[in-house]
Amino acid sequence: MPLKTQADYLSTFASLPDEARVDVHVVAALYGIATPTVWQRVRDGSIEKPQKIGASSRWVVGRLRRALSAEAVEG
């Protein structure tokens, strides 16, 4: 199975409901950063902490959309 590209993650994100959860790869694609940078930004508070589901970390799509909209307005 081929690795997904950022475009794959972004096209999938657009069709997800606000209640859906996504992993760090999707968050990295949305912000245009590497996955280690996502974790660094979580630590410094500039990206919201994910929810833990078992051993997995997942972000809520609706919250990500609001955060990205707020950044666009501030930027």
Rank of each mutant, 00 (worst) to 15 (best):
G32H: 05
I47P: 05
V26Q: 11
Q6W: 01
Y31E: 10
I53D: 11
V61M: 06
D18T: 05
T37G: 00
S15R: 14
R63V: 10
Q51T: 04
V61L: 06
K52P: 02
V42D: 06
Q6K: 11
V60G: 03
G32M: 07
A28K: 04
S56D: 12
A29S: 11
A7Y: 01
Y9H: 15
R66I: 09
Q51M: 08
P36W: 09
Q6V: 00
Q51H: 10
T37I: 00
R63M: 07
I53F: 13
P17Q: 14
A29P: 02
V22R: 10
A28T: 02
V38N: 08
W39G: 01
G45V: 00
R66F: 01
R63G: 02
V24I: 14
P50N: 02
A67K: 11
A20T: 06
S57W: 03
G62S: 12
V61G: 02
T12W: 05
T37H: 08
A28S: 09
W39M: 11
V26T: 15
A67V: 00
P17E: 13
R65L: 07
L64Y: 05
K52Y: 06
G62E: 08
S56Q: 14
R66E: 15
V26K: 09
P50G: 02
Q6E: 12
V60M: 05
A67L: 12
V27C: 09
G54H: 03
A29G: 06
R43S: 13
Q40Y: 06
R66V: 11
G45R: 04
P36I: 08
I53W: 11
G54P: 03
D44Y: 01
R65Q: 09
D18R: 07
R66Y: 01
V26P: 01
Q40R: 15
W39E: 13
T35Y: 01
A34H: 11
D8N: 12
P36Y: 08
S11P: 00
G54M: 10
E48P: 01
H25W: 06
E48C: 07
P17D: 15
A55Q: 13
W59P: 03
S15D: 13
V38H: 03
S56M: 12
I33D: 07
I47N: 10
D18H: 05
T12R: 14
R63K: 14
I33A: 08
G54E: 10
E19S: 15
S11T: 11
Y31M: 05
R66G: 05
G54F: 10
T35I: 05
W39F: 08
A29H: 05
Q40G: 06
R65F: 08
W39S: 12
A55S: 13
H25P: 00
G45L: 02
T12N: 13
L10M: 10
L30N: 09
R63D: 12
A14W: 01
S15M: 10
Q6H: 08
T12M: 12
A55N: 12
Q40F: 04
E48A: 14
I53M: 14
T12A: 15
A29M: 07
S15F: 00
A7V: 09
Y31I: 03
S56V: 09
G45S: 03
Y9D: 07
V26A: 14
R65T: 03
G62I: 02
G45H: 01
F13N: 10
Y31C: 06
L64C: 08
W59H: 06
E19Q: 15
V61F: 03
S11E: 15
S15I: 01
P50M: 07
A20L: 05
V38D: 03
A14Q: 15
